[in-house]
Amino acid sequence: MRRAEAGAELKARREAEGLSLREVAYRIDYNPGMLSMWERGLRTMDTWEAALYLGACVTPMREALRIISLVQPPSDLYWVRPYFDRLDAPIRSLIVQENLAKAMVCYDPARIPGLHQTENYARAMFEDEPHYSQEQIDLTIKSRIDRQKLLQRSDPPQCAFYIHESALRQRVGSSQIMYDQIQYLVLSANLPHCSIRVVPEASPAGRARRFPFRIMEFAEPRCAMAYAEIETANLFIEDRPAVESYYCLVTQVEQSALSEGQSRDWLVRLADEYERMRE
């Protein structure tokens, strides 16, 4: 998956400079077919080759070093994207992986999943966090809204979202914001590629609460990856036994969750509750 992300970043740099594959290949004296395989994540490349490619694309040094780090083989099958000084750095990695995925399973016990958050909900949520600056909030919200285009593609991934009841009942901002947010979820539940299921507080998985995670599945040979967020970084997990443990968690959550139809009816009733609170 790192190789696929590195390839996507190389392609983005080339296109940002308005260069064709043949033009870059000519500049570095490589076969265009080789560059195409690099960009599609189908062939490994050495760090010096990445530096050569990025130099041909006139890439700024800091950006080049970031992309070259993706080419370096990981020491294990757990890799981290720290936030550094701008929140959009690790989000870029997540966006690349989401767009490569063919299917996703997401569980969140404390908040509405980012791919389904309204802008007002997201803003109210981050404004409640004292350690975020206004610039960081604006960057994060822009990235979050841009990510949602994934579900509007002509070939979106098949997605299953499991949302804990407490995340839906926890008021973020005003009753109006929550009403709009729940209504947005109801509409999203009608998308053919999107399953939204509520995990009741009183259910076995609901009582356990656990932690937020997702599994992203890819076309061969990429298989699957688990993903989790912590306070200062994003964690990407490729180790197969570790990913299997996340599949076990999905099974537990799935057994406790309401069906899609029950969840939709539950969300409609919750929206009515928030609507009455507005009056």
Rank of each mutant, 00 (worst) to 15 (best):
R66A: 13
V186L: 04
L35A: 06
P212F: 10
Q134I: 00
Q148M: 13
T59Q: 08
A101T: 03
N120D: 15
C194H: 14
Q148G: 11
Y121S: 02
L168I: 01
E275P: 00
A167F: 11
L150P: 03
L10Y: 05
E119M: 07
Y132T: 00
I28F: 13
Y162G: 09
W48F: 09
M1V: 00
A12P: 01
E279M: 05
S69T: 03
E9Y: 09
R2M: 11
G18I: 02
S188R: 15
Y246G: 02
A101Q: 07
A89E: 15
W266L: 08
L139H: 13
I145C: 06
V253S: 08
M34C: 08
N120C: 05
E260D: 14
R210L: 11
L87H: 12
Q158C: 05
T140S: 15
E165C: 13
A224F: 01
E275D: 02
E244W: 06
Q262P: 00
E15P: 01
L235I: 11
S203Y: 09
E229M: 03
D85P: 00
Q183R: 14
L94W: 07
F161C: 10
H193A: 08
S154F: 13
A89N: 14
R66M: 03
Y83K: 15
V253G: 08
G173R: 05
L35Q: 07
A167V: 05
L151I: 10
A233T: 03
T251C: 06
D29R: 15
E63M: 08
A271D: 01
R13A: 02
D88Q: 15
H164A: 10
V186Y: 04
L21K: 11
F213V: 02
